[in-house]
């Protein structure tokens, strides 16, 4: 048991960056919520390790759990809470959050403007180098839908970022 905990801690070390980056994008830049969800994801994964059959990569499996948790959190949050969070987030972004480059802030804003499924598909396929098939497994969506989300998301991002830079 202790040995497996040490092994699991190594898995946390190896995959935390990818999972947290994905969830931060999926949560429209709400870093605190994303990190909470990432912790919950790892704890849930620990309890369900026996269910991972190796059909998908461990990273995909983790992201799939994280995505479901993110969707639950989105459903659970009230409309007004979301509005407040969005407003606070926009204030943070306008203040520039210290030394963060403008480009990153523009990307976060543009990502936040996408619908959740498009945002997640773009975060997986463009930012995290997942294949469309892997992203389909993570999001629990048909392959064609994911491809469509990525294409539309990319176009919308390019449009938003082009406008921001133009």
């Amino acid at each position: 048991m202790r040995g497996s905990e040490a092994a699991f801690a190594r898995l946390v070390d190896r995959h935390q960056r990818a999972l947290r980056a994905f969830l931060r994008r999926a949560c429209a830049g709400d870093h605190a919520l994303a990190d909470d969800l990432a912790q919950e994801t790892f704890i849930a994964a620990w309890g369900r390790l026996h269910a991972w059959r190796g059909e998908a990569s461990f990273r995909s499996w983790l992201c799939a759990i994280g995505w479901r948790k993110c969707a639950d959190a989105r459903r659970g949050a009230g409309r007004s809470q979301r509005r407040d969070a969005d407003w606070l987030q926009s204030q943070d972004l306008e203040r520039g959050e210290g030394a963060s480059p403008d480009a990153r802030l523009a990307v976060e804003r543009a990502l936040a403007a996408l619908p959740p499924e498009q945002r997640a598909a773009v975060a997986l396929c463009l930012a995290a180098d997942f294949s469309h098939a892997e992203a389909a497994v993570v999001l629990g969506s048909p392959l064609g839908t994911v491809k469509s989300h990525v294409t539309r998301g990319k176009a919308r991002l390019a449009e938003l970022l082009g406008a921001a830079h133009g």
Binding site: V12, D13, Q16, R17, A21, D35, A38, Q39, R104, V107
Partner: peptide, 18 residues
């Protein structure tokens, strides 16, 4: 677009998170 999206400030290892 990929380069902009790939940029994040998360550390490779995060002992506090672990």
């Amino acid at each position: 677009l990929k380069a902009l999206l790939a940029d994040n400030d998360l550390p490779e290892r995060d002992p506090a998170f672990r």
